[in-house]
Design a protein around this nucleic acid. Structure first.
Lengths: 188, 188, 188, 188
DNA sequence: CATGAATGAGCGTTCATTCAT
DNA sequence: AATGAATGAACGCTCATTCAT
């Protein structure tokens, strides 16, 4: 039941928004009553926190699996991270939507748990960049921190416009973004 | 008074969010009553629309001034557009925050006015890219549409992290982003 | 201006209702501001009172003119009173609507002025009936008070259904009502 | 609780009017909170609709029982219908008051349900009249439609003046009205 | 005469939350 | 494990009224 509530509310929060979806809305769909909800969750915000944790933990563990791979070079890792972000829109787009849009509805206490994880995700990208600089794959005159933020922006922003059933696939978009990043758009 | 209400609510909407700020909150700060608010605005959403219009119209008119300039090459124009977006965070960062975060609270009717303007802003970036391709400043094998979205993402995302009083200035960040974009991060 | 306000509000109160019509609505149509309204009227209810007075005074004075006529018999007078009520729907239907529907919005003090006039109107009908009984025009075994109330009900109720541009004219309906009243609907 | 709310609001709407009675007023009397009200009703208007339905359905079913009776002649049926209307003032006078006065506060959608029922009630009276004409109980030269409206007016209007504890009983008044109707007030 | 700004009280409604059963 | 009744605080909004200018 707890899982059913989570699944359902991801869908509803993603489609209508957290504030726009009442607990009544959620339980109505499941055919149970509000009492049931409060048996499994201490508050609406707690549910939101669960969704956030589930999403960022999955993302982080996936990212770490990519990073641990010793055989791949930094470019490949970068590609895979970007691809993961963009392809996630297709696979668990609503979770992502909730994650990016509704974080501000978390309590201070919960934010203190989520923000570092989010920051960790960015730092991992920065790590990939710095590794690549050391391995002479990437140029060394651009600060990895700002570059990582630029990459994240590019990828995350796609949640606002990327349409999985549109004319470009996730791997196409990821490919274009990687080329931009690596080679630049300037004509040689 | 109307202007005072707008200024104040930009600040409050930016800091706490649109839904999290009640009209009572807004008027309390100004020391007036709710009646006064409704003397100047027909609804809370109308106020949000006013803020949106003010922001996007300013952005668009500035962008168009940049684009009209015949003497500058496409690279310079790209830099100026990116710089405008990032430096705006300093000057009217809260307006930007409201614009990027609260659009979903606009009514259908109002969205029909805002969305095309927002899209126009992106199309203008695409135009700069396409001009650059024709003038052989930019490579021609990357689709200008996706690239424009990547640029927008990079720049807009900075609203979530760019700190005007942090260790990097707006022009530094813009410069780094431009270098990334033009030359790529790959080592030659 | 005062008259223009009255005329206009009769129309608006009649069409939309007293509570449903705001002073703003009224002054908007006239192209003036609320301040102007309060220059001419001390309150919204005062305006309603003026409308009531104007209507009932006109009705009463007309009724008294009918009653004073020495040449007419009681039947004719009854017909004329009923006809006046029903034909008024055509000529000043909205005033009548306001009068019948919105009286409850008058203050206690104002009601004390209107109710006796309204009661006077009924008593005058009763008087016509009693005169007719004395003159042997009407049967004497029906209490004139209850009969007068029945007549009033029949006539006033027509405000809810009588349509001046419908298939029956005001004089037709008045004629039918008079026949009912005088001769009864029973077959001899 | 739902029934207690309905009963109470009939009384309050009847005494003060629908618009003049706030939900706060209603729940205060019951010693509960507004939340409770909205647990049982979706809106204030929904409550009004419930009251209307309850009233007209009771009236119609009673009327139909009268009409089905094969043993009674049309005159008796007419009497019983009039008597039902007038005696109802005693038994559920406030419901009637609400029904006659507050219908305009129903929504379009709800009106579409109530108006035909109200019209059905009048049509049933017309039917009794037409049956009586066929059976030669009533004269045939008066249009049954207008006569039915006159009868309804007479009876309904009594809600504005009939006082159950006054000097005339409901059956007295009904009797007088029936005599008026059948025999007319004219002296033979 | 008329305006325009402001008030303040009230209203219908929503909704997360509680709790006895 | 789940229900259903109830709470209470807040919210967006309306509107008759006031008053300095």
């Amino acid at each position: 039941m707890k899982d059913r509530i989570i699944e359902n509310s991801i869908r509803m929060f993603g489609e209508k928004g957290f504030n726009e979806t009442s607990i009544q809305d959620v339980v109505d769909v499941l055919g149970v009553t509000k009492g049931t909800f409060y048996y499994y969750f201490t508050s609406k915000e707690q549910l939101l926190m669960d969704i956030h944790l589930q999403y960022i933990d999955n993302l982080l563990s996936h990212q770490e699996k990519i990073m641990e791979n010793q055989e791949k070079d930094s470019k490949s890792k970068l590609y895979e991270i970007i691809f993961k972000l963009i392809s996630d829109i297709e696979k668990q787009g609503l979770s992502a939507k909730v994650f990016f849009r509704e974080m501000r509805n978390l309590s201070e206490d919960h934010l203190e748990l989520i923000v570092p994880k989010r920051e960790q995700f960015r730092k991992n990208i920065q790590q990939v960049l710095e590794d690549g600089i050391v391995k002479k794959e990437f140029r060394s005159d651009l600060p990895a921190e700002i570059v990582s933020l630029g990459i994240l922006g590019m990828a995350n922003w796609s949640y606002f416009w990327f349409n999985p059933s549109g004319k470009r696939t996730d791997s196409e978009v990821s490919g274009i973004f990687l080329k931009m990043l690596l080679e630049g758009i300037q004509r040689d």
